[in-house]
Amino acid sequence: MDNLLQIIIDHYNYWIVIILMMIGFYVVIARGNLVKKLVGLNIFQTSVFLLYISVGNVMGGTAPILVSEAAEARPDAQVLYTNPLTSVLILTAIVVGVATTSLGLALVVRIKESYGTMEEDEIIDMDQAEDKAERDRLRGPTPEEIAEGHPS
């Protein structure tokens, strides 16, 4: 029983991160609206950030800023710092994330302008209809159509 409780305390953080990640994943694959998909990707992305920061966290540690000027000269082994590397990776990733999200939003705006919709299934239907029309045009009239006297 204690063992189980210990496992939960040790891992609950990762599990919640996975739940958030899966909610994001669900939004991406189950929702047809492109803006909603981007929001889902954002949820997914933030959960990855949380995973990284969780791994870098130390119980009873402090922010990775050296506590005093004296520490510059004398490395202080007593102070526990949170991992600086995960912070660096994630803080750049956040800014890059918003830049790439805006690129996605720009694509959505262009798609909306050319298709008149931003629902995935409608876009696919329109694409397929266009493909079919294109194929019909290339194939030319069928023998039945010629026999009936409609050349095209």
């Binding site: 933030t46 950030f49 920061i53 969780s54 870098g56 966290n57 130390v58 540690g61 402090t62 922010a63 990775p64 800023i65 949170t82 995960t86 912070s87 660096v88 994630i90 803080l91 956040i94 800014v95």
Partner: peptide, 10 residues
């Protein structure tokens, strides 16, 4: 989780 820089950015 002691990552003020990240919190700030987010």
């Amino acid at each position: 989780m002691d990552a003020p820089d990240v919190a700030f950015t987010e």
